[in-house]
Amino acid sequence: MHRTLQPDGWSRPRGYANGISARGRQIHVAGQIGWNAQQQMVSDDFVAQARQALRNIVEVLACDGATPEHLVRLTWYVTDRERYIASGAALGEAYREILGRVYPAMSAVQVCALMEPDALVEIEATAIVPDEPL
Rank of each mutant, 00 (worst) to 15 (best):
P68M: 03
V42A: 12
W76G: 01
A90R: 09
I57Y: 12
V29I: 15
Q110A: 09
T67R: 10
W10M: 08
R83E: 11
A108P: 00
V78H: 15
Q26C: 13
L71I: 07
N56G: 08
A30T: 11
Y84R: 14
A62G: 08
R14Y: 10
I20H: 10
A89P: 00
V78L: 07
R51P: 05
D64Q: 14
W76E: 03
I57K: 05
V58H: 04
L99N: 01
I27T: 11
I98P: 08
W10T: 05
M106S: 07
Y103T: 04
R81I: 00
R51E: 15
R23G: 12
G88I: 01
H70R: 07
V72K: 07
H28V: 10
Q26A: 15
A90L: 15
R25E: 14
G9A: 03
V109L: 10
V29S: 08
L74R: 13
L71V: 07
V29E: 14
L54S: 06
I57Q: 04
A62C: 02
P104F: 01
M41E: 11
D64P: 01
G24F: 09
F46C: 14
E59K: 08
I57L: 04
H28E: 13
P104E: 03
G19C: 05
G100I: 03
A62D: 13
R73T: 04
Y103I: 01
A62T: 02
R101A: 01
I33V: 11
S43H: 07
R73V: 00
E59T: 08
G31R: 15
Y103A: 00
Y16H: 15
S107M: 03
I98V: 15
R55H: 11
Q52N: 06
I98F: 08
I98A: 05
T67S: 11
Q32T: 05
R96G: 00
T75N: 12
L74F: 14
Y16A: 01
A50V: 05
F46P: 04
E69Y: 10
